[in-house]
């Protein structure tokens, strides 16, 4: 059963990764990142049960905290960028190539 959970986790992670690469809307990209984090959490929780240790759950808990903080900052950045550039597309912020 553990294997199934892990494969599900890997699948969700890969889907999230593809989403990050494919989507241009910064908010959706962000959602995909959240998806990847969630997939990781699932793996942690699964391993916690597999190994009979609470460490996995503790780490998943911390991941959630960090993810919350990340969302706050990330969305604030998106709003700021949108305010100045009138766009939420990640492709528009390509000034680094110059």
């Amino acid at each position: 059963m553990t294997t199934h959970y892990l494969v599900l986790s890997a699948l969700l992670f890969a889907i999230g990764g593809v989403g990050v690469l494919v989507r241009r809307n910064a908010i959706v990209v962000f959602m995909c990142v959240e998806l990847m984090l969630n997939a990781c959490n699932l793996a942690f929780v699964t391993f916690a049960r597999q190994n009979g240790s609470l460490d996995g759950q503790v780490i998943a808990f911390f991941v959630m905290i960090v993810a919350a903080a990340e969302v706050v900052i990330g969305l604030a950045i998106i709003v700021t960028i949108f305010r100045t550039r009138r766009s939420a597309s990640v492709d528009d912020a390509s000034l680094l190539k110059h």
Partner: peptide, 17 residues
């Protein structure tokens, strides 16, 4: 290669992973 598109960079990271 430096397109400036963050998605390109992300792709290279992902492929690396």
């Amino acid at each position: 290669i430096q397109t400036g598109f963050v998605r390109s960079y992300a792709l290279s990271i992902f492929v690396g992973a």
